[in-house]
Design a protein around this nucleic acid. Structure first.
Length: 309
DNA sequence: ATCTGTTTAGCCGCAG
DNA sequence: CTGCGGCTAAACAGAT
C-alpha cells in the first residue's frame, strides 16, 4: 500500500478525494487561496495520475468546489486581473477531516440554509472593505502587526479533542519531519484578510503557511516558523479566533460557527463561538458563499455559522 | 472559443 | 435498507 509522503503514488490514483486534493492545493499556497487553474496545476504537478483525463477530473473538481461549502470563493481584486476567482477553504473546515486525515472526511461540511446568510452588514466586512486597499497584498507580516490581533491563537485540527493520537494519514504524519517546527496550517480567514490587504499577525500568518508531504517544496519565503509542532494542519480553529482569551470579540470579527456537536447557536462566548451579532441575517444573500470583494458586490461573506450535518 | 462556475443526476461503496 | 460521501457526466450560464 502506497504511503503518502513518499512520492510513492507515481501514476497510481492518490487516496485523496478531490476535496482533499483541493484543500491541499489551497493550503500549500502562500495566500491560502488559489485560482482554479492553479489548483489544477498543483494537483498535476504532484500527482502524475492527474495528468491524464484532465477533462474528467477537472470537471469533478469544479463540481466539488461549487458543491461543497467548505470552499469559498474570493473575488479577485481589481489589481489582480485574471480568470475566475480565488478559492479558499472555509475557516472552519479544519475539523472536517477525521483526525486530520485527508483520506476521508468525517462529516460533510454543510452550511444550513439559514446560515448562508450574508454578513453584508457585518463589522468584519466593513473592516475588510475599509482596509481593502490600504495594505498591499503580499506585504510581509511583521511583528508590528501582531498586536493587531492579539487574540488569535492556534488550535489543533481535532479541536484539541484527540489529545495525542495522530491518524496515520494525518497531516503531521504525512508530512513527516518536514512538518516539525514549521507546520503552520492554513487559516483561510487569514488568507482572506491578507488577500484583502488586511494586516495579518505574525502568529496567524505563520499558520497560513503549511506544507504537504508529497506536494513538494513550498515557499521558501515563509521562513522558519516559531510555531510549535503541536499545531495541527489547519493551525487555527476559527473558534479560537473569537474567544481565545475566553472573551468576546476579536479586534476583527470573524466567521463563527456553533460547535457541531452542540449543534446550536453558541450562547457562551468562551465556549462555542463568536458573537452572533457579527453577521446579521440578510435574506438577500441566502445561499451565496462568496466573500464579497466590493462593497456592493453580491453575496455574503464568510459564513457566520456552519453545520456539520 | 475557452475557461470558470453552478446545478442536476446517477452510480458505487460503506457504515449504521 | 437508508443515508452519506465520493466520483462522474452533462447541461448550462457567465466571464474572459
Amino acid at each position: 500500500m502506497p504511503r503518502p509522503g513518499k512520492n510513492s503514488y507515481s501514476d497510481q490514483k492518490p487516496p485523496y478525494s478531490y476535496i482533499s486534493l483541493t484543500a491541499m492545493a489551497i493550503q500549500s499556497s502562500q495566500e491560502k487561496m488559489l485560482p482554479l487553474s492553479d489548483i489544477y496545476k498543483f494537483i498535476m504537478d504532484r500527482f502524475p495520475y492527474y495528468r491524464e483525463n484532465t477533462q474528467r477530473w477537472q470537471n469533478s473538481l469544479r463540481h466539488n468546489l461549487s458543491f461543497n461549502d467548505c470552499f469559498i470563493k474570493i473575488p479577485r481584486r481589481p489589481d489582480q486581473p485574471g480568470k475566475g476567482s480565488f478559492w479558499a477553504l472555509h475557516p472552519d473546515c479544519g475539523d472536517m477531516f477525521e483526525n486530520g486525515s485527508f483520506l476521508r472526511r468525517r462529516k460533510r461540511f454543510k452550511l444550513m440554509r439559514s446560515e448562508h446568510v450574508a454578513c453584508k452588514n457585518s463589522p468584519m466586512l466593513h473592516y475588510f472593505h475599509h482596509q481593502h486597499h490600504q495594505t498591499k497584498l503580499g506585504t510581509p507580516e511583521g511583528p508590528g502587526n501582531v498586536s493587531r490581533l492579539p487574540q488569535f491563537q492556534t488550535y489543533s485540527i481535532n479541536g484539541g479533542q484527540s489529545g495525542g493520537f495522530k491518524h496515520p494519514f494525518a497531516i503531521e504524519n504525512i508530512i513527516g519531519r518536514d512538518y516539525k517546527g514549521m507546520m503552520t496550517g492554513g487559516l483561510p480567514i487569514a488568507s482572506v484578510m491578507h488577500h484583502l490587504g488586511y494586516p495579518v499577525p505574525t502568529q496567524l500568518s505563520s499558520m497560513v503557511n503549511s506544507m504537504w508531504p508529497h506536494v513538494g517544496m513550498l515557499s521558501e519565503s515563509m521562513g522558519p516558523m516559531p510555531v510549535s509542532s503541536d499545531y495541527a494542519p489547519f493551525g487555527v480553529p476559527v473558534k479560537s479566533l473569537y474567544h481565545s482569551n475566553g472573551q468576546t470579540m476579536p479586534a476583527v470579527p470573524v466567521p463563527i460557527k456553533p460547535t457541531p456537536s452542540l449543534g446550536q447557536i453558541p450562547t457562551l462566548p468562551g465556549l462555542t463561538g463568536g458573537p452572533p451579532q457579527l453577521c446579521a441575517p440578510s435574506p438577500s444573500s441566502l445561499l451565496d458563499k462568496t466573500v464579497p470583494d466590493l462593497p456592493e458586490g453580491k453575496g455574503s461573506a464568510l459564513h457566520p455559522t456552519l453545520l456539520l450535518s
